[in-house]
Design a protein around this nucleic acid. Structure first.
Lengths: 210, 210
DNA sequence: TAGATTGTTAATCGATTAACAATC
DNA sequence: TAGATTGTTAATCGATTAACAATC
């Protein structure tokens, strides 16, 4: 896990979750070792790329043998911070917010939802995964008490900048933004924008060009 | 709109929806013309990149003037296929499927949801945007009658390959896949995979590396 | 030991940025 | 016309792939 003198490029980082997923599948199928070549065939990438990518973080393999699936899985998990058990809160209990809350894939990947906030009175108090949806007014006290790491933004785009700013002031570490605006925060917070419409339009482009 | 002898790279294509969005904002603010330089500052990219990107599709600008916002917006929309009014169906009426169905941003971008399918009896017949959720058994007849362009896959990953295969056989043009599996279809269909967990883990990485 | 496969350096390819002549 | 800004070519930068010595 040691290494990484120079900054790892985002192109590499964005491939890590995919490796993690494939290793998880291998593990489920009781495969204990894998070579970069075999994995490359499964994933549809080059073996060279896999070795290059992994070597950004350390020499996880063994010459003549390949990689031990279980330990590589664990290493990548550590790099991604899965072991950190990051806690999340969702801002916005609309359709998307609710769907994200009920989705349990994230819990499986080590992220724990501990709070959900909205401003609509009819939503406040509603039960969700063992806690109640709270009003935004309670956010500061909640943040102080539980110090969640990640804020999931599922609010209309009009409100997102203000909410994001508030969360940053209250010490959030990362923002996962689903609002249709490019959040570009300054300072200590990390941001990942998810623009579903962009993805749909990319698909549309591909269909349209045929 | 003419041009494009050689294949446009995916890096460029994936930036088009973002241009489209910024142009939409400019339009709303009654800005009629914009130079690549001004736009580049707004978007946080280089002016050079904007000009290069747009010139993959044609010369939309005018020397000494810049770009006309309304017409560039329209051109990019055409390239993306917004004018085609592609129709969609959602497979899987779980939390995510429901949230996507109720989300109206996609309609705004020119995509019209015309059907929703599941296998769970308790969901069948439920009203959604003016139509009823149907059983998967009715899919072939529906496809034959309405010829939807895009299938939105919001089913558990175990079932997704079979469903995708069926949709392809029935003539779907594109698949927007939310299941946590890399769909790689052969043949005529275009696929766009959305892996929310991957995105969350990328955010986690960034937080973890600080 | 011989065979396999890594880690890593070097070569290639593609994408981004810079520069500038063309032109509105 | 002079100034602005494009479209496009050339230069740079970064990412991917190939090659191979190191080594299990």
């Amino acid at each position: 896990m040691e290494k990484q003198e120079r900054k790892v490029s985002m192109a590499v980082v964005k491939r890590l979750p995919r490796y993690y997923r494939y290793l998880s599948d291998l593990l489920k199928n009781d495969i204990t070792r894998i070579s970069s070549k075999t994995l490359s065939q499964r994933m549809g990438v080059t073996a060279s790329q896999i070795r290059q990518d992994l070597n950004c973080f350390g020499g996880f393999g063994q010459q003549g043998y390949g990689y031990n699936v279980a330990s590589l899985y664990k290493e990548i998990g550590n790099i991604l911070g899965v072991d950190k058990a990051y806690t999340t809160i969702i801002i916005g209990a609309g359709n998307l917010g609710m769907a994200l809350a009920k989705h349990n894939n994230f819990e499986k990947r080590g992220f724990r939802l501990i709070g959900m906030f909205d401003v609509k009175q009819e939503l406040i108090g509603q039960k969700m995964r063992g806690f109640e949806i709270k009003h935004m007014d309670e956010l500061p006290a909640f943040m102080k008490k539980y110090r969640p790491h990640i804020g999931i933004l599922a609010v209309p785009k009009e409100g997102v900048t203000v909410v994001a700013q508030k969360l940053v002031e209250l010490g959030i570490k990362g923002l996962w933004n689903f609002s249709y605006v490019d959040l570009r925060m300054i300072g200590e917070v990390e941001v990942e924008n998810v623009h579903l419409s962009d993805s749909l339009m990319t698909l549309s482009y591909k269909i349209n060009q045929k």
